[in-house]
């Protein structure tokens, strides 16, 4: 465990709290892509299936996995029930079939092992790298977003971006490599880069998130 990984995991936790806080205070899920949220739930469930047999290996990992699956399911529950009237499916129109299909193909072609658990793990890594696309697409369609929504997206993106120095550190210090996670993590960070740039130039300077 190193500083980058801890910072990345904390960033992920923060993103969850920011999202739930946004929905509770504004009593709405305006600006949040339901499709991205569903993709994240699929990501966490397929990746953390190993809770069933590695639960005792690391209390930290197991606790985080439970938090990620639980909060993701809870977010979807809120979007389907309490805040359903504020969800507008007409602006959440990204075709997720391609993301799921592409991730499934990559997972089947290059898993570390051809076992169900490893293929699902690999699938979840690829799917996570693109799961934000419906959300970014929605931002692009609306052209602006509430500041708190952009904080959420930033924290979620920072999580995988911070894993990149973590993988570099582990490569040099522990000779540890995880090529699937590293390549997918870099793709994920690239997808966020435009958003990071606008977030940095606008939101951090106290202005509203608005696309140029």
């Amino acid at each position: 465990m190193n500083l980058f990984r801890i910072a990345g995991d904390l960033s992920h936790l923060i993103s969850i709290f920011v999202l739930l806080h946004k929905m509770r205070t504004s009593k709405s899920c305006i600006g949040i892509s339901f499709k991205s949220q569903v993709l994240y739930l699929v990501v966490y469930v397929t990746r953390y299936l190993d809770l069933l047999w590695t639960f005792q290996h690391s209390a930290y990992n197991s606790l985080m996995k439970i938090i990620f699956i639980g909060s993701s399911a809870y977010t979807i529950y809120l979007m389907l029930n309490d805040f359903k009237p504020t969800h507008d499916p007409n602006i959440d129109t990204f075709k997720v079939e391609y993301l799921i299909g592409g991730s499934a193909i990559l997972a089947l072609l290059f898993p570390y092992k051809w076992t169900t658990a490893e293929v699902l793990w690999s699938f979840s890594i690829w799917l996570e790298s693109v799961a934000i696309l419906p959300q970014l697409f929605m931002l692009q369609r609306t052209g602006e977003a509430e500041t708190i929504t952009t904080h959420y997206i930033f924290a979620l993106g920072a999580y995988r971006a911070l894993y990149i120095p973590n993988w570099l550190y582990r490569y040099f210090m522990e000779s540890y490599t995880d090529p699937i996670a590293t390549v997918a993590g870099i793709i994920q960070t690239i997808l966020y880069s435009d958003f990071f740039y606008i977030y940095y130039t606008k939101v951090l300077k106290g202005r509203k998130f608005e696309l140029p």
Partner: peptide
Amino acid sequence: KGRPETHDEL
């Protein structure tokens, strides 16, 4: 060491 048997990251 390379990759461990179980994934130790999140």
